[in-house]
Structures are given as C-alpha cells and as structure tokens.
Design a protein around this nucleic acid. Structure first.
Lengths: 195, 195
DNA sequence: GGCAGACAGTTAGCCTCCTAACGACAATTG
DNA sequence: CAATTGTCGTTAGGAGGCTAACTGTCTGCC
C-alpha cells in the first residue's frame, strides 16, 4: 500500500473547527478529498492482496495486461485505445502507456523476464530498440488470474447500484478533468513562471 | 505517483466486449474501479506536486500533521480522533496512526530529524520508548505550507457542488466499508483457510 | 529475586518508483 | 559524407514502502 494515509479520517466537525483558523480550508472539499484518497487506497489494497497471492505486483500486472492486449485477437482485447492498434511492444511504448519512466520499465521487464512471463528480443530494424513479448507462461498466468481479479472488482463494487456507479464515474470524471488542468498548469508554471 | 496505472482507461465498449469472454467481468464495476484508482492517482499527483515544491514527501507530511495535532490547542486541532487525545508521540503510535509499519516510521523520522523538522528524545519513564516532537522549524513549515495545500484541495473539488460532494462521500463510504470487509476476510482466510 | 514473554525501536535486505547520466544507434542537416 | 541532435535501453543512486530478525527494556508470574 503506497500512500501514507491516516487510518482514521478526521471527523467533519473537526474540519469545521480547523476552518476557523485556516480560511483556505474548505471542509466539504477536504472531506471529499480525504475520502477519495482513503477509498482508493483501500481498494488498491484489496487488489494488491489478490495479486500478492500470485506473487505478482501491480506494476508487473500492468505490463502483462499491456502486452496481452496485442497478443489477443481484436474482439477480445481489454485495452483498445484509439483504433485498437497492436499493443505497445518496446519498453519505451510500454512505459508511456503505463505512465512510468523508461528506467522503471527496464526494472519491471527485468523481473518479468527473470520469472519467465516475458521475453526480450532485439529489433532487427532498429538496433536501439527491443521487442518485448508475452511468453506462453505469461499468457497462461493471465488466463488463470483474471477471473479471480474480475470477481474481486465486482465484489468491491457490489454495494453500489448501476445508477450509483454511473453517478460515481460522473463525479470522479469531473475531478479528474480538474486535476489534469491543475497538473498541467503547475508544470507549465514551472517552466514559465511569469506567463 | 505510486501506482502503475494506465494513462488511457479502456472504453466502456471494450469492457463490454471483454465481458463476453470473461463472464466474471462486470463492466460497470470495472469502469467504476478503474476511474476510482485513476482519479485517486491524479488527485494524489496534484498534492504531491505541491509537496514536492517544498521538498517534502507525502509520508513526511503525514507525520508532521500527526505531530502537529498534539502541539496545537484543542480547538484548532485538525486531527482529533476519539476525544481529542494528545496526538501520538512515540514512533509506534505514529506508525499505527499513519498506517505504516514501525520500521517505515523509523525511516521517516530519520529523514525528518535530519532535515530539522522533528526531534527525538528518550522517554525517561520507559527507556524502550522515544518521544518525537515537532521543532519550531517543523511548525513554521506547516503554518506556511497548509494554506496553499488547502487551496489546492479546494480547487480540486471546485467542480463539485456541495450536494455532489456529499453524494461522492456517501458512495465512497459504501466501497470503503466493503473493501474493509474483503481485506479482513482475506487476511483471516490466510490464517485459517478451512474455517 | 529471577526468568519467560511481550513490546519499542532499529537494522538488514528486498521491491518499486524516481532522476540523471551514459553508450549505442538513428535521423537530420550542413 | 560528417557532425549534430535526438532516441532507446540501461545503469547508478536515492527515497519510501515491506518483512524478518535483533537488541534492549519492561511486565508478570513463580
């Protein structure tokens, strides 16, 4: 579990009290913020436990899913961004798709290859590049693992009705959009603080 | 940013397609699940950026907040679990409150002490224990940092109305509850698989 | 009083992430 | 064609998580 998060979230009344001293503190915003991080962490923890029982980490699972995408016939691909292009193949593409650095991807592919889930092959056309492919063992692992994973996700979301799930996704979407703007602006500001 | 998460979430139609092959895959559950993790990560990233600009990590910030709690007069404490007891003082208490192991807390306090935000003192009454206290510098940092932090949180949640925030917290609460049960059950099952 | 067990904090070793820098290669451009 | 510039994968070193094991201290029981 990656975040350091408080086990007990502060009560709303405490936030109200604190807002008296800090006018910038918006109690309902802080409450939603803390619940969002906390719930994300809990949910993450449940799936992590699942993965851990199969001796695989979140990062490695992500890479396997990305590779699997291209290995499957078009109709059954889980991850089909854009026009269902063949999945990423090189470490750089995988890193971009997974949202980690190339250096991190090197480490992930290292351990996946060590465990036999994945194989590196030099690219004959561009000798800088490598081609990463799922092995039969890697594919077998996914076929065996995914049903349980999907069951766990379904169980996590079972307290929510279909309508509530749609609502949740809609509300989260608003925050996502806003977060992307803030993230982007902060980056831009770092490069051009006067603009 | 701690999770390895896909930059582009799979589209809902793709989940529907995949559900044909995997009957355990509940498309709306998976959609909500992915959005939850993704949004949590984005939000985390924004605050992390904020913290990073002040050369402090999420983990260290959490420890400072826990220590600050006790250093403040009762009325203005942000984190007042139970009856607003004095905040945690020993590494073990801090670890418990933050949800990390004692070993991890040793490392966090190490770096915080190195940077002058915190001070370790031996407890004269129980020579096994240490007492961790915020220094003047640590307190000053929080006073300077918190307003911006609160502003960022308010900005993140600004697209949501008060009613939507309440709804979000309610829905997240349901998932949290469920996740806690699943987490607990999985742990118990590991200890007593037949019971 | 003395000893077994429990508890506090630390240490050691591992994993996953990061940034920065490198060597090898490709692409561009004079 | 040669030099610059950019890209690819890797390496090195740092931070923050974890578990397991250790040391020192307290507690409880005989």
């Amino acid at each position: 579990m990656p975040y350091l998060l408080l086990k007990d979230l502060p009560r709303y009344e405490c936030l109200l009290e604190a807002a008296k001293e800090f006018p910038d503190l918006d109690p309902s915003a802080a409450e939603a913020f803390l619940h969002l991080l906390h719930t994300g962490d809990e949910v993450f923890g449940v799936t992590d436990q699942n993965l851990g029982e199969h001796d695989i980490s979140q990062g490695r699972f992500g890479v396997l899913m990305l590779l699997w995408r291209g290995a499957q016939p078009r109709e059954t691909r889980l991850l089909c961004a854009e026009e269902c292009l063949p999945g990423p193949r090189t470490p750089a593409e995988l890193a971009e798709a997974a949202g980690v650095t190339r250096a991190t991807m090197t480490g992930l592919v290292d351990t996946l290859e060590r465990d036999g889930f994945v194989k590196r092959q030099p690219d004959p056309e561009d000798r800088r590049q490598m081609s990463v492919r799922l092995t039969a063992r890697g594919e077998k692992f996914l076929q065996a693992f995914l049903p349980g994973h999907f069951k766990a996700i379904a169980a996590l979301m079972s307290p929510l009705s279909e309508a509530e799930r749609k609502t949740l996704v809609r509300l989260l979407g608003k925050i996502q959009e806003r977060a992307a703007v803030l993230h982007h602006r902060a980056k831009g500001a770092a490069l051009a603080p006067t603009g």
